[in-house]
Structures are given as C-alpha cells and as structure tokens.
C-alpha cells in the first residue's frame, strides 16, 4: 500500500486549486490529481467517480501518450490527452511538479465545451505548480 507519510503531506494550495476548477466549470463532474505512478493525491467530485482506478488509468494513458509522441520524434513535456465519448469527455493534463510529477484528470459531460475545459484545467495546473 502507498505510504502517505513517506511521500510527504499534500501541499495546502492543491485543494483550493481543485475547488476553483470545479467552481469555474459547473459542467465538470470531478477532478482527480494523481502522482505520475498512479496514486491518488486529491480529488473533488460532484458525482460518483472511481477515483483510485481513474488515478491508475490516468498515469498509464499519459505515459503511453508520451511514449507515442517520443516515437514520432516529439517531446511531450506539459502534454495532455483528451478522450471523448458520446456521454462526455475526460481530459488528462501533465502537472510537471519538480520532484514529483503529477497528472490532473478532469471529467465532464457531453455538453461541456472542450475549449472551456482545456482553458480551466490548464489554469488549474498553473496554480498547482505556482501557488
């Protein structure tokens, strides 16, 4: 099991950053912040979200996407993955925190405009990196 104490406390500004994201985008179902190796750090949800499984999936998908970018000769620092289905969308953003990279997952319904989601989530990442 993951040892919370060994990894250190969650920085105090993470919670407010996620709160603001959900407040800014009412159509968001939730946001989940995870370490790049798939452990949940913090989440804010308005509905039932399988947070720990989403954390693991998010880290896999971001890592695989970065690997795909590398294969075609591009470097993906600060990258993102957008997954869309008929019922909604899932946006994954790298959070390049020094010493402990993380991934932010934002889940929204089908009516959520992708541009709005991208803009708000990127803003949240900026706050996570520079409080």
């Amino acid at each position: 099991m993951f040892d919370e104490a060994a990894a250190g406390p969650t920085p105090a500004h993470f919670g407010p950053a996620l709160d603001k994201l959900l407040a800014t985008v009412p159509a968001l179902t939730g946001a989940v912040l995870s370490r790049s190796d798939g452990f949940e750090v913090l989440s804010r949800t308005r509905a039932e979200v399988p947070v720990s499984r989403l954390s693991a999936l998010s880290s896999s998908m971001v890592a695989l996407s970065q690997a795909a970018l590398r294969e075609v000769g591009m470097h993906g620092g600060g990258g993102s993955v957008l997954v869309e289905g008929q019922d909604g969308k899932l946006l994954l953003l790298e959070v390049p925190l020094r010493g402990q990279p993380m991934v932010l997952a934002a889940i929204g319904g089908a009516d959520l405009v992708t541009g709005t989601l991208l803009w708000a989530a990127r803003d949240c990442v900026r706050q996570l990196i520079q409080p």
């Binding site: 790049s36 190796d37 690997a67 990279p101």
Partner: peptide, 23 residues
C-alpha cells in the same frame, strides 16, 4: 524498447527509482 516509466513514489514497496505505468 518503448518505455512508460514513471517516478516510483512507493519506496516502501520497492526502492527502485522508476516503475512501469503503461507497458
């Protein structure tokens, strides 16, 4: 090989630096 290593944050489980998160 294609690699999908991430920083290992669970050093209690294993001491190594990185762990595979994709394949």
């Amino acid at each position: 090989p294609v690699r999908t290593e991430a920083l290992n944050s669970d050093r209690a489980q294993h001491q190594k630096e990185t762990t595979t998160v994709g394949f």
